[in-house]
Design a binder for these strands. Sequence first.
RNA 1: CGGGACGUGGCGCAGCCUGGUAGCGCACAUGCUUGGGGUGCAUGGGGUCGGCGGUUCGAAUCCGCCCGUCCCGACCA
Length: 484
Amino acid sequence: MNENERQVRQITPKSEDFSKWYLELVQKAELADYTPMKGMMVIRPHGYAVWENIQRGLDARIKAAGHVNAYFPLFIPESFLKKEAEHVQGFSPEVAWVTIGGQEDLEERLAVRPTSEAIIGHMYAKWIKSYRDLPVLVNQWANIVRWEKVTRPFLRTTEFLWQEGHTCHETAEEGEAETLRILALYKEFCETELAVPVLSGRKSLREKFAGAQMTYAIEALMSDGKALQMGTSHDLGQHFSKAFDIKFEDRNQKLQYVWQTSWGMTTRTVGALIMVHGDDSGLRFPPNVAPTQAVIVPIPAGNWKETVLPAARAAEAALAAAGVRVRLDAREEFTPGWKFSEYEMRGVPLRIEIGPRDVKAGQAIVVRRDTRAKEAVPLPALPARVPGLLAEVQAELFSQARAFLEANIRDAADYAGFKETLENLRGFVRAPWCGDEACEDKIKTETMATIRVIPLDEAAAQPAGPCVRCGREGKAVAYFARAY
RNA sequence: CGGGACGUGGCGCAGCCUGGUAGCGCACAUGCUUGGGGUGCAUGGGGUCGGCGGUUCGAAUCCGCCCGUCCCGACCA
């Protein structure tokens, strides 16, 4: 195969150039495309279908946990954004502003929301009067704009889609419990639906959300060894309620500020799916969020339109009735071999081949995308067998990703080993930390690694020795990694 | 935002150094053929060379500015 053929027919191998592989895959699998505006991408139908499936699974969980959806404005008056000092300081470098409406200059410029705490805080102050109004458990699905300097499809774009939850509670304890409940929800969602295992814990103060009292996060490991934040949950304490004057009369008839949380997951998770599960042949979508779960490829030979095609149509109908997202590709302009490669690249979990030989034998050949294992399944048994196979693929992808994560969590014996591991092996390095931000900064400068999470579990967070950087007393165990 | 590279039909590239108005492979269209791992053959359509300006009789080619993309950093979901 010459260079030209290679470039047309397949993507750059993952092991050869991970970054190039990722970017090519995003385009060739038609997940997203660039636009004339810097850093702004189109999420194409195939990519958006994944996001819709993510939304469906996440939205169901958020609602099951008692939340309701609402929608707040795209614009936020500058004065609102400025009310919480740390918040505005953290976000101002990346806010886009509207200064003109129609022909007229605005008296006050409007921020295109980089996050919605400010506008939502303002409205909550209006709505909340009594402890009887609490808790407020609201979520919104929205688009966000952050004027990033460096962008990459799905992982960092100027505009992105997310859900942001904003809750208010009577007590600090309730607020903290909500923050942790969402953190656990995110972890369960990622692992169950995305088949992406995550580490969860709290962030260091350096890494926390601008305006939060404490930030918690889940972190996944991409197959190039870099970490990616999959979701965050913030305990806002009373920072915003004091800034926006969100007060309620408590059970003792005293005025108090509410305790708040906010939390979000974004379209970045689509990027994680690509980077965690993809291989040299392309995407490998977990069945639970795959736009198409099974594709039927008829083998056109002889009088296939009278034999194979009806069998394929019947299989399609039976699988659809069984709740499988199935597609029959009976196009004649592409050969079976071409379709095999195409659907592998696009990440379809199962391929179902039906040819003249199969029709005679009353069966179909089912091929798994994850293992490429082939299995002959009697045609009438497809609706029963395919869901089971999809579940197996889902489980296998998670199992592979978890094995990779576990194999790439290492303990550092000393600082030399710490640097060595981050430089050559990547992954997470678990090490005792003194808790000093100066130490954290030095580590970042020297190794490009940041603290991704500090485990919440008491035992897991117990440092085994002195700080890996300064040798002073270890106050916590932290997971360090280079991150996206 | 710093350091580096790149921008030529949809994709991947050649041409640029040594100016003379574009070429290859794939994709696309039509026909036949083939079909269980990107079938084979034939015919055909499509670009004015990222944008703007300059030098020149003449610019894809030389010069300047701008825009965009990628890589390595700083910042961030």
